[in-house]
């Protein structure tokens, strides 16, 4: 018999004035899995999370967390979930340890137990050395880790994370991903919002894509990427005069080639690694000098373009790549607190 789901969103709707911020959102998250809510700024991700964590009351519909209804049993929901919000919501003027102990006191956890858990969490998130420093002195990554630790003081079975890595440098992002994977290994269920396809790709078992408050696609990361079209190979030539010759090499291998002469860049569809290998071999045989050769995976923008026919309306501002691709990084937007 399958276990009850850890989280269920049941036709959630939230309207602000005459604007529908969240419009009939439903999904189910099985225990011990990760759901990624993917969408651009203002898509309704944060509002959805706020409703599921009892911070905001749904206009209609409801949600259940660990089996408890967010509207009729908010207190039970709060006992069974942790929330890491967009702004690292820790007290800047307290030390890391004081922050965790305060949360423990507010839960009403026995002081001895709270002390032990705080210590272990600080250790676990590499904050032991900074535990007695005032949070003001923490780096962005340390704050996020403390925020995550603060959400775990009561060891909740379900954890909600609202854009947990927005604004973090690639290394801190990687560390946070590792920490989250550990949690999932231990059986915690995660619901996380993100603007980064890569993040959803790395962490989520299932992805729900939201645009303008509505679910426009759902599936595994692989299914999503398939729906948004092929990956592409991007070649950047060292010398402008080689661009035409490069096009002559690429065209027979890939078919259609898009040339950006100013950037000395050629883009062509590529299915995967075998295509890449053939292309790389052809170039090295030709003797033409190239600056860069890489596979460009579909970005959030591409997913959006494929799913909705319009671009995700957000301004690119931050490189989202963890540095794994040699080619062009996905260039979706980041930043912004006002995602309500």
């Amino acid at each position: 018999m399958p276990a009850d789901p850890a989280v269920e969103a049941d036709h959630l709707v939230k309207t602000f004035g005459d604007k529908k911020a969240v419009d009939d959102v439903s999904f189910v998250v099985p225990q011990g899995t990760v759901l990624g809510l993917l969408g651009p700024n203002g898509a309704g991700k944060t509002t959805t999370v706020r409703m599921m964590t009892t911070l905001s009351v749904p206009t209609s519909g409801t949600a259940r967390v660990a089996g408890y209804d967010v509207i009729s049993q908010p207190d039970q929901v709060r006992r069974n979930m942790g929330l890491t919000g967009q702004a690292a919501s820790v007290d800047e003027l307290l030390t890391g340890r004081e922050n965790l102990r305060m949360i423990g006191e507010l839960y009403g956890i026995k002081p001895g137990v709270a002390k032990r858990i705080s210590g272990e969490l600080l250790e676990r998130f590499s904050l032991a050395d900074a535990a007695d420093k005032v949070v003001k002195q923490y780096s962005g990554g340390m704050r996020r880790r403390l925020d995550l630790a603060a959400s775990l003081v009561a060891v909740p079975p379900v954890l909600f994370l609202d854009e947990p890595t927005t604004g973090l440098d690639p290394r801190s992002r990687q560390e946070l991903w590792d920490a989250l994977r550990e949690l999932v290994k231990g059986g915690t269920t995660l619901v996380l919002t993100t603007q980064y396809l890569e993040e959803a790709d790395r962490l989520a078992d299932e992805v729900v894509v939201i645009d303008q408050g509505r679910i426009i696609a759902a599936g595994t990361p692989l299914q999503l990427k398939d729906s948004s079209g092929q990956a592409a190979v991007v070649v950047t030539m060292s010398h402008p005069e080689d661009v035409a010759a490069a096009e002559a090499i690429l065209a027979p291998l890939t078919g259609e080639v898009h040339v950006d002469a100013d950037a000395r860049q050629l883009t062509a569809p590529a299915a995967g690694l075998s295509d890449m290998t053939r292309i790389a071999e052809a170039f090295s045989a030709s003797g033409l000098e190239i600056d860069d050769l890489g596979l460009k995976r579909p970005s959030l923008d591409d997913v959006f373009l494929a799913l909705t026919g319009h671009r995700a309306e957000s301004e690119p501002s931050e490189d989202a790549a963890g540095g794994s691709d040699s080619g062009t990084a996905p260039t979706e937007a980041s930043t912004g607190k006002g995602n309500r």
Binding site: A3, A6, Q31, A66, N80, I117, E120, L121, R124, L152, V155, P156, P157, V158, E182, L183, G186, G187, T188, T189
Partner: peptide, 8 residues
Amino acid sequence: GLQPGIGL
């Protein structure tokens, strides 16, 4: 039966 462990 929701009993997560977080390495604690």
